[in-house]
């Protein structure tokens, strides 16, 4: 072996960008995107940039983002299901985004213990979610619902109903507990285009997830292999590459926070 072959991957990035420029970077992207963005229907997700910032229920000014590279998944509203009722609360905080920014409308679902989870509630919840798809610049809908085992059939039926309402052009994404993407795969058959494994606030599950990913194994369901859900306050040791990154920030986003995250991504080797 020649010692000249030994270069650090850190050194590779700037030199690559310097010498071959952005065009080369773009050329690199072509084969990767076709192979590494698996989803139920890759065409539906293709319009979304590779970086998506989550804008949660707090005032957010995201006019600094570059719409070519970054999209915004904003909490559009929360559905609370209790007893026989379904209540939808829209976003009560400001959201400013760059012109031409692509948006993902996120709807969080919270279910009380006494919820009946009947057909009528599926209908009401699906109606409320589908309405969010009509908001300006929304190119996808994402559901954030930590469904328990007993709520899974409800969730499945809701997603089927939603798929029917949204038609073929509007992609559907869900956030997925890491366990759903590991050994507790019940989501492979869901009518969705993307499941985002949530790799933060894992608590006791951290070791299991880290062990799986650092040992080179990937998520079991293909639907989990197109994206990763990360938080700016938790850094990772070993993650599969070539996936859309959804990024959570515990405080309001700033341009510095986005750049800091990108630099951290850049540090990964």
């Amino acid at each position: 072996m020649s010692f000249h072959h030994v270069i650090t991957e850190n050194a590779l990035v700037p030199s690559m960008c310097r010498t071959t420029g952005i065009l080369a970077c773009l050329l690199m992207l072509v084969p990767i995107r076709s192979e590494q963005f698996p989803s139920r229907n890759p065409d539906r997700m293709r319009g979304l940039p590779p970086l998506v910032l989550w804008a949660w229920e707090r005032p957010e000014d995201l006019r600094f983002i570059n719409p070519q590279t970054t999209a915004v998944a904003f909490l559009a509203g929360t559905i609370r299901i209790h007893g026989d009722d379904v209540a939808f609360h829209p976003r009560f905080q400001s959201l400013l985004v760059a012109d031409h920014a692509k948006l993902v409308a996120v709807v969080r679902i919270e279910v009380d213990r006494d919820a009946t989870l009947d057909r009528s509630q599926i209908d009401q919840a699906a109606t409320a979610i589908a309405k969010q798809a009509l908001l300006p610049r929304v190119v996808a809908v994402q559901i954030d619902f930590d469904a328990t085992r007993s709520q899974r059939e409800f969730y499945r039926a809701l997603l089927r109903d939603l798929r029917r309402r949204l038609g073929s052009s509007m992609p559907t994404s869900i956030t997925a507990l890491a366990s759903w993407c590991l050994d507790d795969d019940w989501i492979s058959s869901l009518p969705i285009d993307e499941a985002v494994p949530m790799l933060f606030r894992l608590g006791a599950g951290t070791n299991e997830v880290v062990g799986q990913l650092t040992s080179g194994r990937d998520f079991r369901p293909l639907i989990c292999r197109g994206s990763l859900g990360l938080s700016t306050d938790e850094r990772w040791t070993s993650l599969p590459t070539g996936r859309r990154l959804y990024v959570f920030q515990p405080r309001p986003w700033t341009e510095q926070a986005e750049l800091a995250f990108l630099w951290e991504v850049h540090e990964w080797r």
Binding site: E9, V13, P14, C17, I22, C25, L26, M28, L29, I32, R33, Q36, P50, L51, N66, T69, T70, L199, F200, L202, G203, T206, V210, L213, T214, G216, D233, E234, R235, W236, T237, S238, L239, P240, T241, G242, R243, L245, L259, L262, W263, E264, V265, H266, E267, W268, R269
Partner: peptide
């Protein structure tokens, strides 16, 4: 900044092997 952003994102998409950093904040 734009170059950095583009390169950073493309780097994520391009690097074929596992990536290593310093780890998540554990409890």
């Amino acid at each position: 900044k734009r170059v950095l952003v583009v390169c950073s994102i493309l780097w994520v998409l391009a690097v074929p092997s596992a990536i290593y950093s310093c780890g998540p904040f554990l409890e």
